[in-house]
């Protein structure tokens, strides 16, 4: 059942993205930025965690989870260290993704050429 809901919820989040592309005529960059902000705001109301416990990777794989993780890490550290924890914790949960994207992006660029 976990797999089913991961597929359905993840797919539905992408459908929302497709509607923004085709109906609102946004480009992919605007859609991604909007989704990150949306994920962050949803976490601000403690809603995104419910989605993750329900859909698993269906909620953690879409880029909305990047916004959620930014805020989540920030709030965790804010609980421990007070106000400056917001700045300290922001990349706590997100750094793995960013670091991987930089590393693999660089390595692929070194070993491959664009195919056009």
């Amino acid at each position: 059942m976990d797999f089913f809901w991961a597929f359905v919820i993840g797919g539905l989040i992408c459908v929302v993205g497709q509607l923004l592309l085709d109906v609102a005529k946004m480009d992919a960059g605007h859609v991604m930025s909007t989704f990150v902000v949306a994920g962050c705001v949803l976490d601000g109301f403690d809603l995104y965690d419910n989605l993750i416990s329900f859909a698993g990777a269906g909620a953690t794989v879409p880029i909305t989870s990047f916004g959620h993780s930014l805020l989540h890490g920030a709030m965790e550290q804010a609980d421990k260290h007070g106000f400056w924890g917001i700045a300290l914790g922001m990349f706590q949960l997100t750094s793995a993704g960013i670091a991987a994207a930089i590393l693999f992006g660089f390595l692929v660029a070194v070993f491959f050429k664009p195919k056009g």
Binding site: G10, V15, L20, D22, V31, M32, V61, P62
Partner: peptide, 17 residues
């Protein structure tokens, strides 16, 4: 379309490309 843009793989694609 958004099926590959919205997941974190789209983020990695934008960096790698």
């Amino acid at each position: 379309g958004a099926g590959t843009a919205v997941p974190v793989t789209g983020f990695a694609n934008s960096i790698t490309s």
